[in-house]
Design a protein around this nucleic acid. Structure first.
Lengths: 116, 116
DNA sequence: TACCACTACATAGTATCGCTGAATAGCGGA
DNA sequence: TCCGCTATTCAGCGATACTATGTAGTGGTA
């Protein structure tokens, strides 16, 4: 999508990937492909791999090398306990933002509602 | 809130401010206070002023200087036509993201639901 | 007068994040 | 041999929010 989406993904893409890993472990190339299938058409490998390096360095995921029949070995990431806590906080932050913006949207679509 | 919120606000804060201005014109100090009242406790003047400079330079808002009884003159910002279009695109991007993440959340809270 | 608090705006510097573009590596088919 | 697909890595860039500080106007108070 556009430039707005790029900026909007900052912070949320990390949560999205952690959420994907919470469902089941996955490796970078797979995550990228899944994101693109789900409509994030502009997200390319470089973006995802850099994100995976970050969350690995922060200790949010465990990594296991798994050989592939079709190419170099895969680095399979799985969410660990710390990553789970981090994901919980992500959901809290996201819910807060979602509620605030939802409120704002109501005010705009019917600005005659309240005095404040 | 925390560091996650800081990153999440990138991109969305601009939309939030545009949405506030869509309800009614406002000046920087006022917007900052309103955001803080609404729970964005870490957002300070500097952040908002820098954002206002950006959206003014992009021609998304009209500006009017209005004298104040309590301090320096206020710069009152109001959303113009271009800003309205930009806000519409923000809502589209936001809705997309909201839907995607909502889907993801369902998969996590009941990961036994579907085969894919 | 001198000081402080509140209002109001501005800005230089920093950190983080996602994107661009390229390189590297393994495997199989034309 | 060359190409395409799989799979990972990295240097450099642009955009954004935060930190910290400075400037300015008004009014209250000791």
């Amino acid at each position: 999508m556009g430039k707005q989406m790029t900026e909007m993904l900052k912070g949320t893409l990390e949560g999205i990937v952690l959420a994907i890993l919470a469902v089941q472990p996955a490796y970078g190339y797979e995550i990228t492909a899944r994101l693109r299938d789900q409509g994030f058409s502009d997200i390319v490998e470089g973006t995802v791999y850099a994100l995976l390096v970050r969350i690995e360095q922060r200790g949010l995921v465990d990594v296991e090398k798994v050989p592939s029949e079709k190419g170099p070995p895969r680095k399979v990431y799985s969410l660990n306990a710390l990553g789970g806590e981090y994901l919980d906080e992500f959901w809290k932050s996201w819910s807060f933002l979602e509620n605030r913006i939802g409120q704002l949207r109501l005010h705009i679509e019917r600005p005659l509602g309240e005095g404040e």
